[in-house]
Design a protein around this nucleic acid. Structure first.
Lengths: 349, 349
DNA sequence: GTGAAAGCGCTAACAA
DNA sequence: TTGTTAGCGCTTTCAC
């Protein structure tokens, strides 16, 4: 790595002159600037980011902690984060907590040592279950801006970006009712997450509003312990979940619609329904979470609720950087931004 | 952020004493160490990574450039990278080139300014097409260790990690032949990538070896321009590719096996075959790339060739860090590591 | 056992 | 217009 010092020596000028010339300072004569910059490009000089960070106390780097990158939703979130961060001149340093609280703590420790200007975090399942957020409050003490996304908690005071989980399901039930569906079931494999709860609540409220009651028989709650992300839970889904869903469909022959709260149950339901020779979506309309690709991969096509994951990433970064740049003293109160979902494809168009 | 200086002032000792005490130096008396460390934890002192980097000329950070995180394969690669990097004490800073050469160049520029100790790179489609790698050679000049993974080129001299694309397909054909399949088709949507070519070549060679010829009629090459990653090419797959595959299957009624070179065509083929009321895998065995989850989501189940993406990420990091730590002068020649694929699930077990 | 000083690469206030 | 100096936070050599 060539340094200012080396350039200065070769050109017989001082380091500060070179520095100023590199930065096109008006203090420096046009000629010197030219000489300096010529040599700089020749020697492929790049200003050392580390040194700049030390001086300016800004790293232009954001820390990102996501629970699980193998979940397509978070992959899209990360995509949105990276693209947007880059547009705004920031790098991202990325961690995957694998739904583990201790990993989350480790990563926050690493991040807390001056490497980042701000943190984007989606809480791990374990953290949410234990309902303990002390490790995150350290950030606040350090005055590091934080944006919580998707997996959030009321217990931390910061900017947040979420999707309208409750409304998403509520509106989906409403729309299915409008299309003439008489018995709408609900499957969830994520009732242990707060987003999962919001979705269940949306279903319950809608059931009561539109059918006068919420029949527990129509709600299938799949329960499994969180595996490490590498295992992908695929064994669980392949066996236990598969059977439960099949039983659920068989036990409820009058079902003419199913809403799945997570992105895998929906696809499974389509496959199982199709195996059971049920006409989808004619006799059974199935709605799940996901995106266009998810929808395309299932056959017959699953109707999907698009969570606009990229948008969540994007808005989170925008909020975070705004917070980083805002005057600490002017205590702008924190905002919670709600990204609207939309329904696309399949049967409910 | 509390600094050594502040600790020193509060304790009425010098900065260097504090530094040594924090680092448990033997020069310092046990008592002082205790005093210092007590205050340090009290004030939540963390040594400033940036300052350390500047001093040591090591960042303990790796740069990662992947073409597309929405591709599950690369998501898994990234997962493997992060986990392994963390184990070895490194952070990762992540970029997605979106298959664009200019993005790749931008990112290498950013990375080239002293922020990372080494680079992990899977080349963008555009870079491979243009066959121009000058921007990458800059790294070599800078003496930044580089590991190319999955998408590689002979033109760059560095460590590489790839999967055995040729053999994977070759062996799959072999295994299908052994199971009595008489007419094996091949579908590829990635013939523009070098990995795609390897796979096609594996099919060709195997066809010639086992059937005495390679019938062009049995090879379907899907062509589409690269969209931005957000668009997910889903429109293309939903329409044009879907039709082409359907025609392909209809035009080749004697087909009793299909190998798909990419992870989407295989799933599409399953869905289309099932729509055409073909018994899968009894009458038509379909093999594609992917992982357990992919396989589980298709119905009937796709047989899949597992690329062990996590393993690729893991080995890449290990090679890179080994290279970072090795004596620059001792010119250990570069290695190319080949990760073996395996076939799982579905019909070919 | 402790401290002073130099230096990593850079910028910026101030001096010349 | 150019150069000198100090300092960002830390480590490390060398005095004391």
């Amino acid at each position: 790595m060539v340094t200012l010092k080396q350039l200065a020596q070769q050109l017989n000028v001082s380091v500060s002159t070179v520095s100023k010339a590199i930065n096109n300072s008006e203090e420096i004569s046009a000629e010197t600037i030219k000489r300096v910059q010529k040599l700089a490009t020749e020697l492929n000089y790049k200003r050392n980011k580390i040194a700049l960070s030390l001086k300016s106390n800004k790293t232009l780097t954001l820390g990102v902690i996501l629970p699980d990158i193998l979940n397509r939703f978070y992959a899209k979130v990360l995509y949105g984060i990276q693209i947007t961060a880059e547009e705004l001149g920031y790098d991202i340093i990325t961690f995957f907590s694998r739904e583990s609280m201790s990993k989350e703590i480790d990563y926050l420790q690493i991040i807390g040592s001056g490497t980042v200007d701000g943190v984007l975090l989606a809480l791990s399942e374990e953290t949410l279950n234990k309902n303990d957020f002390s490790h995150i409050k350290d950030l606040t003490i350090n005055n590091t801006p934080l944006v919580l996304l998707d997996r959030i908690t009321d217990k931390i005071n910061c900017d947040k970006v979420i999707i309208d989980d409750f409304d998403a399901i509520y509106n989906e039930v409403k729309s299915l009712v409008k299309m003439g569906r008489k018995q709408i079931g609900f499957i969830t494999a994520i009732n242990n997450l707060n987003v999962g709860q919001f979705r269940s609540n949306g279903y319950r409220k809608a059931s009561i509003d539109f059918f006068g009651k919420c029949d527990q028989q129509l709600m299938l709650k799949l329960v499994h312990q969180t595996d490490s992300a590498t295992k992908e839970n695929s064994e669980y889904y392949r066996t236990a979940a598969h059977q439960s869903i099949e039983q659920f469909i068989i036990n409820n022959p009058d079902l003419d619609a199913i809403i799945a709260a997570d992105n895998i149950s929906g696809i499974l339901a389509v496959n199982i329904g199709s195996k059971l020779n049920i006409k989808i979506p004619k006799d059974l309309s199935i709605v799940g979470f996901g995106d266009k690709l998810t929808s395309m991969l299932s056959h017959p096509q699953l109707t999907i609720i698009n969570q606009h994951a990229v948008q969540i990433g994007k808005r989170s970064v925008e909020l975070l950087i705004k917070r980083i740049n805002c005057d600490k003293s002017s205590d702008n109160s924190f905002v919670t931004e709600i990204i609207q979902t939309t329904t696309v494809g399949g049967s409910s168009k």
